[in-house]
């Protein structure tokens, strides 16, 4: 991961997806990371972003993430959704679940 501010052009992927197991109930996701031994409870947006990253192991940018998630979460303002996704990605980076990379 490179330091600095995130942008819509950055690509994102799950860290060590083979080490992750998860369950989704209602809107929430709980996830176990076998690489760190940590268990996480993710809210609706964070959970959907994480599952979206797992569906795209080669990586995905925020714009594509927003398009992917628009089908799941109905938010009329696309820019607001992108900003929320960006925030969720930053949280996932903090949890060592996601990383930015250069495509």
């Amino acid at each position: 991961m490179r330091p600095g501010r995130t942008s819509l052009m950055d690509s994102w992927r799950a860290v060590a997806p083979h080490a992750l197991v998860w369950r989704q109930w209602d809107d929430d996701v709980v996830l176990y990371n076998d690489a760190t031994g940590s268990t996480h409870q993710l809210g609706p947006l964070g959970g959907e972003v994480m599952l979206c990253l797992l569906r795209h192991p080669a990586g995905i940018d925020v714009a594509a993430l927003a398009r992917d998630m628009n089908a799941i979460i109905e938010i009329p303002d696309e820019l607001q959704l992108a900003a929320e996704i960006q925030r969720a990605l930053d949280d996932l980076v903090e949890l060592q679940l996601a990383e930015r990379f250069s495509a």
Binding site: D27, D28, V30, D34
Partner: peptide
């Protein structure tokens, strides 16, 4: 309660959770 909240409480209360891992 949401199932995720019940799950996290069980995790916090489990003795051998970290021993058994996945």
């Amino acid at each position: 309660l949401p199932r995720s909240a019940g799950f996290m409480r069980l995790v916090e209360s489990a003795f051998s959770y970290s021993v058994l891992g996945r």
